[in-house]
Simulated scan of single mutants.
Amino acid sequence: MLGVLTTQEAVLAAESFSAITGLVMSSDLIEEATSSDDDEPAGQWESSPWGPRAPAIRGRVRADRVDAWWKNARSRFEPGRRYLQGHLWTPELLIQALEVLPTRRRPPLALELAIRTQGAVNVETTAWTSRQRGQLLLARQLRPGIPVGSFDSFMRL
């Protein structure tokens, strides 16, 4: 995936990498955007129905610096395990993430929660915060029953 950081999709790849590993894409990992940079990836993703509407990262990702960080951090991540924000995935972490992460990162997490609870919990990420908190209360009540395995382990017919 780090190879993608040198392409036009670098902004989206960096967002994904950050969501998994917890790497904060700080200013030392991003080159200032030029006027031509602003027109390329950001415009592409804003007009795409599949990409984020407003990526938080503006400019070009310094792939060499991200790669250097990854070489040091990689040992903390076990192959075959799921991670969210650099922590081993748990139902509790998923619920916490839905409470505190930026709105742009919540829809895929809400979808995962809905799938794992077989539709019992549907967090409306565009609803008012008070409504989302109410929906997450139900998730906290169901937390012990939320499957922790991979999707294919609990979706077999």
Rank of each mutant, 00 (worst) to 15 (best):
L12S: 12
T126E: 14
W50H: 05
R74W: 04
M1K: 02
L12D: 12
Q44Y: 11
R143L: 12
R58N: 08
I57T: 12
M25I: 11
T7E: 09
L84G: 03
L109C: 03
G80Q: 01
I146D: 08
V100M: 08
L93N: 01
S36V: 15
R140Y: 06
K71Q: 05
E46F: 07
P144Y: 10
G59N: 02
S16V: 11
G80A: 04
T129W: 15
T34C: 10
R131V: 15
P108A: 08
S27C: 03
T126K: 14
T129S: 15
F154Y: 10
K71S: 03
G3S: 09
L111A: 06
L88R: 11
L29W: 00
S48I: 09
A63I: 04
Q135I: 08
T117L: 03
I146G: 14
A73G: 08
D38P: 11
V148G: 15
A63T: 00
G149K: 12
A97F: 01
V11T: 15
P108C: 10
F77Q: 01
L29M: 04
G59R: 01
R60W: 04
E124G: 08
W45A: 09
S47K: 14
E15R: 02
E124C: 05
Q8T: 15
H87Y: 09
Q96M: 03
L84Q: 03
E46S: 10
L138A: 09
A97P: 07
I20Y: 01
W45I: 06
E78W: 07
V4K: 10
P107I: 03
S27M: 03
Q132L: 02
D38I: 14
M155N: 10
W89I: 11
P102N: 07
A127F: 07
R116P: 14
R104A: 15
P79F: 11
V24H: 06
A42V: 09
P107H: 02
A110S: 09
